[in-house]
Amino acid sequence: MAQTVFCRKYQQELEALPFPPLPGAKGQEIQQTVSKPAWEEWQAQQTRLINEKHLNMLDPDNRAYLLDQMERFLDNRDTDHAEGYVPPSE
């Protein structure tokens, strides 16, 4: 049985991440408070932001921006969206 965590995004017990997604204390915190589905959703959002806004991950300002957007996303606060992104129709 997979381990579960009380997800701060979805406010319910869901499958936990198998390992910290980031190094250090921040990664440990995310593993303990964010579910695998929420993290996967963030990764898709992160990819759209990086691509559409042409973020350079070598730039400290761009990394700080993305970390701020991650916190906002995981806390269900307003986040920036990739302009022109249209979700695929089902």
Rank of each mutant, 00 (worst) to 15 (best):
K53N: 10
K53V: 01
K53G: 05
K53I: 12
K53P: 01
K53A: 09
H54V: 15
H54L: 14
H54F: 14
L55T: 03
L55W: 09
N56H: 07
M57H: 06
M57G: 04
M57T: 02
M57K: 06
L58H: 09
L58W: 01
D59S: 11
D59L: 09
P60S: 04
P60H: 05
D61G: 06
D61C: 00
D61E: 13
D61P: 00
N62R: 02
N62F: 05
R63L: 01
R63S: 00
A64G: 09
A64I: 07
A64K: 08
Y65C: 06
Y65V: 00
L66E: 00
L66C: 13
L66R: 08
L66G: 06
D68S: 14
Q69D: 06
E71S: 07
E71R: 13
R72V: 04
R72E: 03
F73E: 00
L74V: 05
L74P: 00
L74W: 07
L74H: 02
L74F: 08
L74C: 04
L74S: 01
L74I: 06
D75Y: 12
N76Q: 14
N76L: 11
N76P: 01
N76K: 12
R77C: 10
R77Q: 15
R77I: 10
R77V: 02
R77W: 10
D78W: 14
D78P: 10
D78E: 15
T79Y: 08
T79S: 04
T79W: 03
D80K: 07
H81A: 14
H81V: 15
H81D: 12
H81I: 15
H81C: 04
H81N: 10
A82C: 13
A82Q: 05
A82D: 04
E83V: 12
Y85R: 06
V86T: 04
V86F: 12
V86L: 11
P87G: 03
P88V: 01
P88W: 00
P88A: 10
